Amino acid sequence: MNAYAEQVAALANSTNETVQALYLRFLAGEITEDMFVALATTALTVGDSKAAALADAGVVAALTVMTAEVVLPVGIPAPKPPPNLLRQIIVDALADEEPKRALETGARGRTLETAQHAYKSGLESHEVKFWTRAPNSGACPACQNLAGQVMPIDKEMWTHKGCSCTQKPANEHQKEKSSARNRDNAKRAAATRRANDAADPEQSAARRSAAARRAAATREQRERERRAGERT
């Protein structure tokens, strides 16, 4: 995990700890439910502001290293979510069968998502043309497989719920190396498939069928996660 990703993860954990501490006060009867919702919503708002500031600093640090020149921050503004969006995250979590777990998912997820969006905004403000994924140390297989690919800045980074991967700026040289590597990998994979197909046609057909099923399942899972994100 890179230094910026560690800082984002720490901020997400801090936001969650604040919300959890408030939840314990609510359970103890020290504050009412309305007070808890209001204070927890404020904690998410503060997390948003800190995430934007952290992303601004993270972009500057990455660009300074990549260009070997001093890059100044642009001042990424804190997000302005739709009215009641943050409050609804807390309300929905309270209504969950496992409020403590749902509050953790909501608090951490909101801070991580804000940091990701703010970082992308910072890259665009600095007119960066390419980016690559920087997965965290516990990244899922899907995120690990996407790491190293250099993408154009207008390509959104795919994320799942609770994803703490970050983007890193990339330059034209890195893009060319990535494209060449992808072409070489594709050629080797194609050669391997042809050899396997020639050796065992029936097994090859079974492999293609299984691969198609896995791809369909992955697409369905991503679509469910996208729809769930839209509802929140």
Rank of each mutant, 00 (worst) to 15 (best):
S179L: 14
S121L: 10
L123T: 02
K175Y: 08
C163Y: 09
S137G: 11
A118C: 09
P141W: 11
S164N: 15
R193V: 08
G122R: 05
C165I: 08
P169L: 04
R193F: 14
S137K: 10
Q174L: 09
T166G: 05
L146D: 09
R194I: 00
S179F: 12
G122F: 05
R181Y: 13
A189K: 13
K120S: 02
W158Y: 14
G138Y: 07
R181P: 01
N171M: 03
D197C: 07
A147Q: 04
L123R: 06
D154P: 03
H117E: 13
A134G: 07
R133D: 02
H160V: 12
S125K: 15
G162Q: 12
R188Q: 09
T166R: 06
D154M: 06
S164V: 04
L123A: 02
D154A: 07
E127T: 10
V150T: 03
A189I: 00
V150C: 00
P201M: 03
D200F: 08
H117Q: 14
I153W: 01
C165F: 10
D154I: 03
Q144K: 15
H126K: 07
R194T: 01
C163Q: 09
R183P: 01
K120V: 07
E176L: 11
P169E: 05
A195H: 00
E176A: 12
W158E: 12
Q174K: 08
L123W: 03
D200A: 03
P135V: 06
A147H: 01
A199Q: 11
K187L: 12
Q167L: 15
W131R: 05
C163S: 02
P141N: 05
S178L: 04
A195V: 03
T192M: 13
H173A: 11
E124F: 06
S164C: 10
T166D: 08
H173Q: 10
N196P: 00
E176T: 13
T166H: 00
A190Q: 12
G148L: 04
T132K: 06
R183I: 08
M157H: 02
E156C: 01
K175C: 00
N185L: 13
G148K: 03
D197S: 11
E202R: 15
Y119G: 02
Y119L: 06
T192A: 15
H173E: 12
A139V: 04
R188V: 10
S121K: 15
Q174V: 06
N171T: 01
E156H: 11
A186P: 01
A189D: 11
A170Q: 05
R133F: 02
C163R: 09
N196C: 03
R183F: 07
C143Q: 00
K161H: 13
R193P: 05
V128F: 02
A139E: 03
G162F: 13
A139C: 01
G138H: 09
H173M: 07
S164K: 10
D184Y: 15
